[in-house]
Design a protein around this nucleic acid. Structure first.
Lengths: 152, 152
DNA sequence: TTCAGTGCAAAGCGTTTGCAGGGTG
DNA sequence: CACCCTGCAAACGCTTTGCACTGAA
């Protein structure tokens, strides 16, 4: 994660935006900070987090901004459920998501978990996107218990 | 799974439904057969395939039926794009999906591809759902070319 | 005859888009 | 002062749901 708090991400944000001829706005700063603080957040959760900090931020702004931030490489998204995607900051170390289908618990694993897979696919010329990966299954705690359903 | 073609899935369908106190209908037969024939199909594609075979099958019936068939273990689904999920028959051997983000090409790999991952997670008590896994990245062909975007 | 299953239509959720006004650079 | 960005509202794609009728067992 960031080792320079506060202005850290703000500065890289401004710089990266400028490179592309894009503009720095309060909304963009807030949305980036929200993603960093929430760790794994859906667009809706980002919106909720940002609202109240600045009077009225619109949902479409959140969607458009997350898209921009992802293009800039500042955030990434994965699909941890059937519904909305979740975004996380790239300040964090790249990680693989392991999701329990029963309790919904999400564990992060180091990329080494899938290193053999990366290697095998690389031999076929395929470049695997590790950060986007979501592995589903049933966690230890739920394995013993009764069936239930969460997102997939 | 099945080594008897033709009526095979029909019979197992009837049997499995009966076990649960459910009923066999023409729609359910057709939808199961559509999933088998299309190999990887979205609900919409299943609907299109089924229509014309029987006068008017409704979209909600397709959704409800796919849900039932999945509970019975006759079909499975994965997320090969940001949009609709794709369903496939469990008659096929279990496989892992590897998707190119640029050209959208989908390759199937044997489960052994992720065997090390399964083992590592199993050590943590986590039972991985291999058939649901979708791995994203860039294929050999697209790696050399210019950027573009497909589903994620 | 019973009750699961179906079609239909409306609603729901998450997301995208067109447009006009506003604010950054 | 040009043009990117925003808010607003409508539209959109996919899926779910309520309800009355139909048909499998």
């Amino acid at each position: 994660m960031s080792d320079d708090p506060g202005t850290g991400s703000g500065e890289s944000l401004a710089a990266r935006l400028r490179e592309q001829g894009l503009r720095l706005t309060p909304q963009r700063e807030l949305i980036l900070r929200a993603v960093e603080e929430l760790r794994h957040a859906t667009p809706d959760e980002v919106l909720a987090h940002v609202r109240g900090q600045v009077s009225s931020v619109n949902a479409s702004t959140v969607y458009r901004t997350l898209e921009v931030l992802e293009e800039l490489g500042l955030v990434r998204h994965t699909h941890l459920s059937d519904r909305a995607p979740t975004y996380h900051s790239t300040d964090e170390h790249e990680h693989v998501h392991v999701v329990c289908r029963h309790c919904g618990d999400v564990q992060s694993y180091a990329p080494e978990l899938v290193a053999p897979v990366v290697a095998t696919l690389a031999a076929d010329g395929f470049t695997m996107d590790v950060g986007h990966l979501a592995i589903f299954g049933v966690c230890a705690g739920c394995a013993s218990q009764s069936p239930a359903s969460r997102g997939t």
